[in-house]
Each structure stands twice: as C-alpha cells, then as structure tokens.
Amino acid sequence: MDPSSMNSPELQNLLAQEKQNAMISEMISKLTSSCWDKCITGSPGSKFSSSEASCLTNCAQRYMDMSLIIMKRLQQ
C-alpha cells in the first residue's frame, strides 16, 4: 500500500468522522441494552405500550443527565 495515502488529510478526516459514528452507535447500542432491561419487563408485545415507550425515552435522557453530573463532579 502506498503509505502516503494513509496520511492524506482527506482520509484522516473520514477516519475521524467514522470514529465519531462508531462512538455514537456504540453508545446507542449500550443504552438500548440497559434501558431495554429496565423498561421492558414483560414479554414483548406487538407494539410498545405508551409507558414502555416513555420509559425508554426517559431512560436515555436521564442517562445523559447523569453523565453530565459525573463529568462535573470529576472536574472539581
């Protein structure tokens, strides 16, 4: 492989972009897994009940709140 092509700014940008995408999708998949365990307690139905759906939304948003608190706390 032509080593210079690995250093092209174009490729570096694309890699940075892909890295960010990978972090986002990892976060979604981890959060889906743990919110699923918290919110979907019964056997899965043919559609989510409104309480299951809002539990999932709340779960994700409270996770963000918590992350913020943790970051602030660690910055002190």
Binding site: I28, S43, P44, S46, F48, L56, M64
Partner: peptide, 21 residues
C-alpha cells in the same frame, strides 16, 4: 412468535433511544 415480536421491538427500542439522545 415471541421471538419475532422481540426482534421488532428491539429494533424499535434502538430507534427510540437514538431519537431521545
């Protein structure tokens, strides 16, 4: 049938989480 519902709901849950974030 539980398995097929479960797969559909899990995909849906992934979408809900993504939107919420």
């Amino acid at each position: 049938s539980c398995i097929s519902r479960c797969i559909d709901r899990y995909i849906e849950a992934t979408g809900i989480i993504g939107k919420a974030l």
